[in-house]
Amino acid sequence: MIRLAGVSRTFASRDGDVTALRDLDLDIAEDQFVAVVGRSGCGKSTLLRLMAGLLAPTAGTVTIDGAAVTRPRQDVVLMHQLPALLPWRTALGNVMLPVEIRRLPRAEHQARAAELLDSVGLAGFHQRHPYELSGGMQQRVALCRALIQRPRVLLMDEPFSALDALTREELATQLQAMHMSAPATTVFVTHSIPEAVLLADRVVVLSTRPGRVLRVVDVDLPRPRSFGHNAHVARAAEHIAELHDLLIEN
């Protein structure tokens, strides 16, 4: 569904051009959950912004369903590391922002926004403002805002990295449940190898700058997976060790 062919991206800087990605090829199938791991500065965020249509590749092509991505698409949503909520809007108001900007029918989406908030455990918090919510709750609101448009592609840029470890695991588990009940093609950038193994069908390991695809590791553990003890803990540990070695050697 998403195809990157020979994609390079350079940025002009004071010390000359910096190549963030060089000659990168990647194919992502419909409804697949792909995690992207790599050292800091390997171009993971650049990769997402190319797919989101916020950046254009310097060379190569990015296509979704065969159509070149030249601008942000309505069926593709990018979620940030920071919740990026509007402080003057309530949780519900923030979830409704894309509906207002894209001028979608209001009434039906209002109901859907409320359902989404309920589904991530924010039932009593629809009318609260971001500053009245914890970091984890804010990021849940941001997740609902991303899902309100029923995106076919969900791009997530280290969405849980600013949260404490437990909240992070909780949100990852919730994301897995949502992906199982309503799948969308998901590209999930993370620094956490266990998180990648928990969530992803495939883990893409990027090399250090300039970023290329070093290895793609298939994770074929049955779902739902969990961070705790289960029948597959040994296989999960193997995947984690393999990815760990790849990143350390690199």
Binding site: A52, G53, L54, R71, P72, Q74, V77, L78, H80, L82, A84, L86, L97, P98, I101, R102
Partner: peptide
């Protein structure tokens, strides 16, 4: 903030919006 600017752009918000 940069992330709010990017939010607007990724939603294809018009200049007015």
């Amino acid at each position: 903030p940069a992330e709010l600017g990017e939010l607007g752009r990724s939603l294809s918000a018009t200049g007015w919006q």
